[in-house]
C-alpha cells in the first residue's frame, strides 16, 4: 500500500512502491490528463506539481511522493473556472495536437508561482518541455499574457 495525496484527496494505492508516480496517477487513479511521452525525464509531458513545484512524474517512484501534496492538471480549474494560464492557452490558441500541453501548462503554472513576471530568459530556463507540434511561439506569448492577467 502506498499512501498518496493527489489533488487534495488521500489515496491508499495497492501498487508496487517502485511504480513511477506517473503511472499510478494515470492507471490506479485514472487521471489521464498527465501524459507519458518518454519515461526518462526528457519531455515534460508528465509534469505535475509536488508541493507546488513542477515535477516530472515519470521518474519518481510513487512511494517517494508519500507525505507530499501532488497536484495534476485536473486540479487546476475550480468548478469549471479555468486558471489564467489555461485561459491564456485558449486565448492564444496554443495547443495543436495538445498532447504535450497539459505538462506544459503545469510547468508554466509552477514558473509563474515562483516568478510572477518572468522574462524571456526565465521562460527559456524553466520551460524545457518538448512539443513536437512546435507551439513555442504561442507558449511564450501565452505565458506573458497569463503573467499580465
Amino acid at each position: 500500500m502506498v499512501r498518496l495525496n493527489v489533488n487534495g484527496k488521500t489515496h491508499n494505492v495497492d501498487v508496487d512502491p517502485a511504480t513511477p508516480l506517473l503511472w499510478v496517477i494515470r492507471e490506479q487513479l485514472g487521471l489521464t490528463g498527465t501524459k507519458y511521452g518518454c519515461g526518462v525525464a526528457q519531455c515534460g509531458a508528465c509534469t505535475v506539481h509536488m508541493d507546488g513545484a513542477a515535477l516530472r512524474s515519470c521518474v519518481m517512484p510513487c512511494a517517494a511522493a508519500t507525505g507530499k501534496k501532488i497536484n495534476t492538471i485536473e486540479s487546476l480549474a475550480k468548478d469549471g473556472k479555468l486558471t489564467k494560464v489555461q485561459q491564456a492557452w485558449i486565448d492564444h490558441e496554443v495547443p495543436q495536437c495538445g498532447y504535450c500541453q497539459t505538462g506544459m501548462i503545469m510547468a508554466v503554472t509552477a514558473l509563474l508561482k515562483e516568478k510572477p513576471k518572468p522574462t524571456d530568459a526565465d521562460i527559456d530556463a524553466a520551460i524545457t518541455n518538448i512539443c513536437r507540434c512546435g507551439t513555442f511561439q504561442e507558449v511564450r506569448a501565452a505565458v506573458h499574457a497569463a503573467a499580465k492577467a
Binding site: R26, G30, L31, T32, G33, T34, K35, Y36, T72, I73, E74, L76, A77, L82, Q86, W89, I90, E93, V94, P95, G98, Y99, Q101, T102, I105
Partner: peptide, 21 residues
Amino acid sequence: LKRLDTRDKVSGKQVYGIDLK
C-alpha cells in the same frame, strides 16, 4: 476563427488513444 478542439486540451479532458478506458 478559434479552433473547435482547444478547450479539452488545456484541462486534461481530451481523450487520446493512450488514455482510452
